[in-house]
Every structure is written in C-alpha cells, then in structure tokens.
C-alpha cells in the first residue's frame, strides 16, 4: 500500500459518504417530479441523518450486542467495499487486497448482520423482514457470483481494476453478447440486494410488504442514522460498480490530481444518471409478490450462466 493509493482510497471513502445520501435524495426527487409531487430537496436525506444523530439513543428491551453492533458492521463492510472498488481511479483502490469475490462476501456480511439485528429484539416484523431478506440474499448470491465469473473470464482476472482496465483497452468487448447478458444479470442482482423495486419498496409504509425496512423498525436515533447511511452507501457502491464495470470511461488510471478530479466529476455524473434512470424505472413498475422474486433471481442466474457460455463459445 503506497501513500497515493491510501490517499485515493480516502478520497473515495469521503466522496461516497458525502454523495450517498444525495444520490438517494436525487432518486426521491426524480420520483416526486415524475409523479407530479413537489417532493423534498435532494439534500433531505442528509438533513434526516443530522436530525437523527442528535436524538436519544434507544435500545429495545430484549436486544443484545448483536443489535448494537449490526449498524456498525453494515457501515464498516460498505466502507471496506468502497476501499476495494475502483470508483474514481483504478490506480488506487488498494485493489490487490480484494477482488470481486471479496466484494460479494463483504456485502453478504452486512446483510447477515442486518438479518441478525432484525431477529434480535424478538418482534414479529423484525423476524419477518429478516427471513425475507436472507431469502433474497441467498438466491441473489449465485447470480451475482456467476455474473462475476463471466466478467472475470473476459478480462482474465477477478481483480476489479484489471477488469476495468481491460474494458478501457478493448471497448469492443463490451458489445459482446456475454457482456450484455452479464450486465442484465448484475442489474437484477443490484436491484435485489439494494432493496429497490420490484423486489422491495424502499418507501413503503405497510410493514407486511417490507423487507429491509421491517428489519430496521426497532432502530432509532443515531443507530438509525448509521443504518440509513450504510444502506445509502451500499446503493452508491452498487451503482458505481455497474457504471465502472460496464462503462468505465473517464475513470482515472493514475493518481495524478488532475486525473483524480476528472474521475471524481465523471463518477458523480454517472451515479446521478443511473440514479435518475432507476428512479424513472421505479415509477413504472409495481412491487413483485414475494414468491415471484425467486423467479426473477433465477432468471438473473440463467442470464449469468448464458453470459459465461457465450464468452466461451463466441470469442
């Protein structure tokens, strides 16, 4: 780990923490516009977090250290992923410390702790959300890993930086059927893992339809702020991953300050664009019945499988 690499990683972490709530705000604002509502400002999530941080800390009666630890582990695992993933630059990112597979397991770590936190206070809704969340996560994991397999085969490496570099060096490889199928698979997985429609509705107010929200029902005050921030960081990471794995142009390949500045600007623009696209998509779809979700994830699995077969037979 060299000094510029550490600086690059630090910039990425700072950027993601700063941008993540605004990205969520932007998605909510877009949705409000399209639905003809005035909607809150894009910085509203930041204001919410600030407000929550200054409220009292509450611990539910029967919960233990798992409940208290979960928000921190969720945020810590998210931030670890930010350190590993090339968002602004491929040259920093401490990329050698972990590859795409490591990212999958870090994400799963966060999910598992949230699930345990849902069970810990012993409420019916918490258990329900936990059970559903682990179902989705368990079925999303194979699709995710197979999509990674497809991407790694193309680049000859599972390292994120190398995959990004290989696309930069040979942009035509993106237009191959293998890459497009992998993109489709990854997109479905991202929607499922980050709790977006059609898998989970992030703005639902009905507990019976919730997945993510019902796990965190018992959180309040600063703990809730950490959970919210962590979920927003997760969404940002996923969108950043899609952006840079499938359209890496503009990413810095050195740690030169000018390149880093361009990289930062470009990644923010890409995130905003993807956020608007997803928000628009969400206006037009309804939430799926819970027991249709496995079918969606199976479809993603099959797409990823086809992506691998394609990249083997069509190159």
């Amino acid at each position: 780990m060299t000094v510029p690499a550490a600086v690059g990683a630090l910039i990425q972490v700072t950027l993601v923490i700063a941008v993540a709530p605004i990205l969520t705000g932007l998605m909510r604002a877009t949705r409000a516009k399209l639905e003809g509502r005035a909607g809150p400002s894009v910085v509203q999530p930041w204001r919410d977090i600030r407000k929550l941080l200054h409220k009292e800390r509450i611990k539910p009666e029967y919960s233990g250290w798992v409940f208290l630890l979960a928000p921190r582990v969720l945020l810590a695992s998210g931030l670890m992923v930010v350190v590993l993933v090339p968002l602004i630059t491929t040259a920093t990112a401490l990329g050698g410390s972990g590859d795409l597979f490591a990212v999958v397991y870090l994400v799963l770590l966060g999910t598992v702790f949230l699930v345990l936190a849902g069970l810990d206070p012993g409420t019916a809704f918490g258990g329900m959300g936990a059970s559903r969340a682990i179902t989705v996560a368990a079925l999303a994991e194979p699709a995710f890993l197979l999509a990674i397999f497809a991407l790694s085969v193309r680049a000859g490496s599972s390292s994120l930086a190398t995959i990004v570099d290989s696309v930069l060096a040979e942009p035509r490889s993106l237009a191959s059927p293998g890459s497009l199928l992998a993109l489709a698979a990854v997109s479905v997985v991202v929607l499922a893992e980050s709790g977006r429609l059609p898998v989970d509705n992030p703005s639902t107010h009905l507990e019976l339809t919730m997945i993510h929200e019902s796990m965190v029902l018992e959180y309040a005050g600063p703990d809730l702020a950490v959970v919210e921030l962590a979920s927003q960081v997760r969404l940002t990471i996923f969108l950043g991953l899609i952006a840079n794995l499938f359209a890496p142009w503009g990413i810095a390949v050195t740690t030169h300050p000018a390149d880093l500045a361009i990289g930062t600007g470009v990644v923010v623009a890409k995130l905003a664009l993807l956020g608007v696209v997803i928000a628009t998509f969400e206006v037009f779809v309804a939430k799926m019945r819970l027991f249709r979700v496995p079918e969606l994830l199976t479809a993603a699995f099959i797409l990823a499988f086809l992506a691998i077969t394609m990249s083997f037979f069509l190159t």
Binding site: R57, I58, P60, G122, A124, G127, S131, R132, I134
Partner: peptide, 29 residues
C-alpha cells in the same frame, strides 16, 4: 442508551410466541 420497550410497529405486550421461529424463518426458502 435508554432501554425501552420494543416498538414492534406500535404493538404492545409482545410475547415470545409472536417471534419468528426457526421453522418460520426458513419457510420462504
């Protein structure tokens, strides 16, 4: 931290019978 009663969406008097059991937890899968 202040220890408070579970909120549970406003449901009071929670008992252990309302919890998700191992069987119900694994039911969707």
């Amino acid at each position: 931290r202040r220890v408070a009663e579970n909120w549970g969406s406003g449901r009071s008097l929670q008992t252990a019978r309302m919890e998700y059991t191992a069987t119900s937890f694994a039911e969707p899968l």
